[in-house]
Amino acid sequence: MANAYVKRVMIDTGSSADILYFDAFQRLGLTDLDLTPLTSTLTGFTGDSISPMGTTTIPVTFGGEPRSKTLLVSFMVVKLPSAYNAIIGRPTLNRLRAVVSTYHRVLKFPTRVGVDEVRSDPRESRDLTATMLFKRPRTEPFSAMPPGPEENTRDTHSAERVLELSLDPNRPDKLVKVGSELAENQQVQMIDFLWKNDDVFAWTPNDIPGVDPEIAQHYLNISPDARPVKQRPRKFAPDRQKAIEDEVTRLLDAQLIEEVKYPTWLSNVVLVKKANGNWWMCVDYTDLNRACLKDCYPLPRID
């Protein structure tokens, strides 16, 4: 969630909402500026109602590469004590097209390259049970970065060292990494190959010329019955506003985007902090995606 590996997430097929608890909301580095006001209330199975603090939209990645899927999830943020950090309910499970087995403690979902699965951690399950039943102190529920698919079985101290190589003496920032454990002749061959093909690397958006429209074009398959949606503008803190302006200026200078004068559809941007402290800018295309017809056969067809 938002570039952090979050433990103790409850998969609840009986919940009609996705919930993020305020303690986890703060640990993710989010503030009140990331909240959108909400007037509705939440009602539990006991009949008790609570007013959420608001909603926040963040990217959530399920599974590990190469079989992973990332969704922008709108969580209701509630300020209640809980042994969990978040609850994933039916809205996201349906979008994920997930199948849940509580007996096997596994969640399976389709991706572009096959079916992936997410299994619960037995140790976390035991700690969670102890927390709920015996009120033991909680263990740290976050780590800085998501673990790789083999992190649990790999010795992190035996990671291979790499050599940084500059491909352009005039551009010291153009660095590539070569494994240091390669044989000497393999290193020479690899470095020579990289130098000969340095033009295929894209270091800035200006290095990406794009695809000629005569070769391929992409279009949005919007339903003719869909009505345009203009999302209500969101307010950002000064540092986030500057990050948005810098990113938009960079994309404009690279001619990857252009300003339009017909704001039929308007979607807000969503900022997520990277591990290096920089901001990652996304666009909330929830309304636009909802209006697009689903194509179960995306491959070219011959009529």
Rank of each mutant, 00 (worst) to 15 (best):
P147K: 04
G148D: 14
P149I: 04
E150W: 12
E151I: 00
R154A: 10
D155I: 04
T156L: 12
H157W: 12
H157K: 15
A159F: 02
A159I: 01
A159H: 01
E160M: 02
V162P: 01
E164W: 03
P172K: 08
P172Y: 07
D173R: 08
K174M: 10
L175W: 13
K177I: 01
G179I: 00
G179T: 03
E181D: 11
E181A: 14
L182R: 10
M190Y: 07
M190W: 09
K196Q: 11
D199F: 12
F201C: 01
W203K: 03
P205I: 15
D207S: 08
G210V: 06
G210K: 08
V211W: 14
E214R: 10
I215G: 01
A216S: 13
H218K: 10
Y219L: 06
Y219H: 11
N221Y: 13
I222W: 09
S223A: 15
S223M: 12
S223Y: 15
P224L: 11
A226W: 09
R227D: 07
R227L: 15
R227W: 03
P228V: 03
V229L: 01
K230H: 08
K230W: 00
K230M: 07
Q231Y: 06
Q231L: 05
Q231N: 06
P233G: 02
P233K: 01
P233E: 04
A237S: 15
A237R: 04
D239T: 05
Q241Y: 03
K242Y: 07
D246I: 04
D246T: 14
E247G: 03
T249R: 15
R250I: 06
L252P: 00
L252N: 05
D253M: 09
A254M: 02
A254I: 10
A254L: 05
I257T: 05
E258D: 05
E258G: 12
E258H: 13
E258S: 14
E259H: 11
V260I: 14
P263F: 06
P263D: 03
T264E: 13
W265L: 02
L266Y: 14
L266W: 10
L266I: 09
S267L: 02
S267M: 04
S267I: 00
N268Q: 09
N268V: 05
V270Q: 01
K273G: 01
K274D: 00
A275P: 03
N276W: 00
